[in-house]
Simulated scan of single mutants.
Amino acid sequence: VKCFSGAAEVMARVRRLGQDALAPGDTGWAQLVLQAPLPLVRGDRFIIRIPSPPATVGGGFVVDPHPGRTHRRSRPEVIARLETLVSGTAAELLQQALERNGPTSAGSLLSNASPEGEERDALMHLVQAGEVILLQASAEGAEMPKDKALLAARSWWSAVARQIEDKLSAHHEAHPLQTGLSREALRSGLRLDSRIFAGVIARAALDGLVVDEGATLRLSSHSVRLTTAQQQAVDGLLAGFTAKPYLTPSVKQSVAAVGEEVLAALVARGDLVQVSPEVLFLPNTYDAMVARICETITKEGSITLAQTRDLLATSRKYAQALLEHLDSQGITKRKGDVRVLPPS
């Protein structure tokens, strides 16, 4: 058939939806598959004609100019969605759009809003009622979501939150000594793009579902728990660090004492500070050393490797590892053979 709308015409194929045939004077649903795009919006009227012999066979108005797919003919949910598009409230239309399209920015969702602002008021109500979820780090408030704010239907958010909980629970069970799952591993498992994933994690952290630790994510209920035997081994190792705080057991010795996974857990939760591939310190020892080095530099203007070794009553290996670590953290700056404080 030929489809005419305004001054435009294009060949089209008609797919009836929900009915096998329409008698003259009847109304029903159909999807027009156009051979070329037309700039149509919801509410535009059209007529269709048979080209040969030329005859007008029907007409109607556009309900969904961008369906995104070819509908199946006998799907009740398709007809229900179209009926909502025709007679649904502004709130129902917004919810339906989010359920169909997934997370969408507020600006895109309201791109066809009426000048009267009915859709904006409806969106505000949906957000405040918790039917539409803001994917960001701040809870719903009295203000209208900004155009770039990501929004999701509650049904979509609930399904994703369950996936997050399931995936993190499985990881914690399989790796009880790891603090959490890497961000990228979770994002890949959820199959979300980076922007939506960032909004999802911000919202999940706000709701208390997850704890965002930067590189890793964990359930708020998860913490590393050592067995009795592991805790005894850790106590013995930490006693060695306490006995010689500036000449501590090496990484290799520590792994031999408690195991690689347990040592990684101790570093991850802050029980030990690793300053090089071979050197570890207790956190209070580390803080005290940093304070003494900075105090000396402030007083003397700089500090050498030898001076650091003597100041801390340690060996060259430990002093060098510590100074190189402080350089990498921006706490000190190497200038020839001395360290100085970086400009503030």
Score class of each variant (00 low, 15 high):
residue 2 K to V: 15
residue 4 F to L: 11
residue 8 A to H: 14
residue 9 E to T: 12
residue 10 V to E: 07
residue 15 R to N: 11
residue 16 R to G: 06
residue 20 D to W: 13
residue 22 L to M: 11
residue 23 A to M: 12
residue 24 P to Q: 14
residue 27 T to N: 14
residue 30 A to E: 03
residue 40 L to M: 01
residue 59 G to I: 08
residue 60 G to M: 04
residue 62 V to I: 08
residue 62 V to E: 05
residue 71 H to M: 08
residue 76 P to C: 04
residue 80 A to E: 07
residue 86 V to I: 10
residue 86 V to K: 00
residue 91 A to P: 04
residue 92 E to G: 07
residue 97 A to C: 09
residue 98 L to E: 03
residue 104 T to Q: 15
residue 107 G to W: 05
residue 108 S to M: 13
residue 109 L to T: 04
residue 110 L to Q: 03
residue 117 G to N: 02
residue 119 E to K: 05
residue 123 L to A: 00
residue 126 L to D: 01
residue 127 V to T: 02
residue 131 E to Q: 15
residue 132 V to I: 10
residue 135 L to K: 06
residue 136 Q to Y: 06
residue 142 A to Y: 11
residue 144 M to V: 08
residue 153 A to V: 10
residue 154 R to Y: 08
residue 158 S to Y: 02
residue 160 V to H: 12
residue 161 A to E: 15
residue 161 A to W: 09
residue 168 L to C: 01
residue 173 E to F: 11
residue 176 P to E: 00
residue 177 L to S: 03
residue 187 R to M: 03
residue 188 S to Y: 12
residue 188 S to R: 15
residue 190 L to F: 14
residue 195 R to D: 07
residue 197 F to A: 03
residue 199 G to K: 05
residue 202 A to G: 07
residue 202 A to I: 13
residue 209 L to Q: 13
residue 210 V to A: 01
residue 211 V to Y: 06
residue 211 V to A: 12
residue 217 L to D: 04
residue 217 L to K: 01
residue 219 L to F: 03
residue 222 H to P: 08
residue 222 H to I: 08
residue 224 V to G: 15
residue 227 T to Q: 09
residue 231 Q to V: 06
residue 232 Q to P: 05
residue 234 V to F: 08
residue 239 A to N: 09
residue 240 G to P: 08
residue 242 T to H: 13
residue 243 A to Q: 13
residue 246 Y to I: 06
residue 246 Y to L: 12
residue 247 L to N: 13
residue 251 V to Y: 15
residue 254 S to R: 04
residue 257 A to F: 11
residue 258 V to M: 02
residue 270 G to A: 03
residue 276 S to W: 02
residue 277 P to A: 07
residue 285 T to K: 02
residue 285 T to S: 06
residue 286 Y to K: 02
residue 293 I to H: 07
residue 296 T to C: 03
residue 297 I to R: 02
residue 302 S to C: 15
residue 304 T to P: 03
residue 312 L to V: 11
residue 322 L to T: 00
residue 328 S to V: 05
residue 341 L to R: 10
residue 344 S to M: 12
